[in-house]
Nucleic acid binder design. Structure first.
Lengths: 151, 151
DNA sequence: AACAATTAAATTGTGCACAACTCAATTGTC
DNA sequence: GACAATTGAGTTGTGCACAATTTAATTGTT
């Protein structure tokens, strides 16, 4: 009983620590990605967009946003930068002229070969076992879902 | 043996998913914080700075940066905003004039009372048990440490 | 067909996050 | 004590992230 009271009084503190740990871990992960992706000329959010396009292409701005949880205020300038880098082309859809379809260029397609080494280099840096990674992934997905339903 | 080969071939993919899950969970957590902290007039990074100051005060910009993993490029303008909000005061240290000591104002101190309800509201939204939170915290701390040592 | 409501992108404005650089104060070495 | 090296903040520039607004295209309703 005492343990429960202590646990409850510590819950907010622990929760605060978890949020900060989340914030720190996310920054640390993108910091590890940074020099690796620099070789490709990409930032981490740009790499995420390319991953989606390498899977299936073309995708509308709307679809990319739904997949990555980003809005047009973030994606519009990001896609312009990807376009000026020559990895992507934006074209108005003929069927629905509100939509902008994002296509891969030849260079954008070719980049996927170079990008194949990226995940392994991150896995090497993570220092967690496959089981821990799987458990972390599961916990984070449930946490994200719970947080989203709280808004 | 086959399982190991499969597991190894899936490791990079899982790792990539974990990094994205981390990125998404961190964004979701700050999104839940946003409306809660809006009542205090703070953003999440500003709240983190205030938490450090509520614990011990004054702190130099350097100390705040070490505690939160932020550099002066982020902290200098953030502290100016906290100062213009009236929560904080910056004064050059007399002993070492390179240092800027960040002090809490009366309003900054008073804010801690209002802020006491914040962690509980986040804990309610997280939807994880105390045990899961503790485990997540532990895993994230080890992950962050491993990632930092990889840079 | 007319028109209100909705949807897709883009734009504007604010605030992190970080690299690269500047400048002044301090420390270490001779 | 002189002076190079280091340290602490700040500034500039780039790129997210997101709220709020704008504009144009489409859909739904009558």
């Amino acid at each position: 009983m005492l343990a429960i009271v202590i646990a409850m009084s510590e819950a907010p503190r622990l929760n605060r620590q978890v949020c900060f740990a989340l914030y720190s871990a996310s920054k640390a992960a993108t910091a590890v990605y940074r020099p690796v992706l620099e070789g490709l000329g990409l930032t981490y959010p740009q790499y995420l967009v390319m991953l989606v396009l390498w899977e299936d292409e073309p995708r509308s701005v709307r679809e990319l946003g739904a997949e990555l949880g980003l809005d047009s205020g973030t994606l519009s300038p990001l896609l312009k930068r990807l376009e000026s880098l020559g990895f992507v082309e934006r074209r108005r859809s003929a069927e629905d002229e509100r939509r902008v379809e994002v296509h891969l260029t030849e260079a954008g397609n070719a980049l996927s070969e170079q990008a194949k080494a990226v995940p392994q280099r991150l896995a090497d840096a993570a220092g967690l076992s496959a089981h821990e990674l799987a458990q972390l992934h599961d916990t984070l997905e449930r946490l994200t879902a719970a947080l989203h339903s709280a808004i």
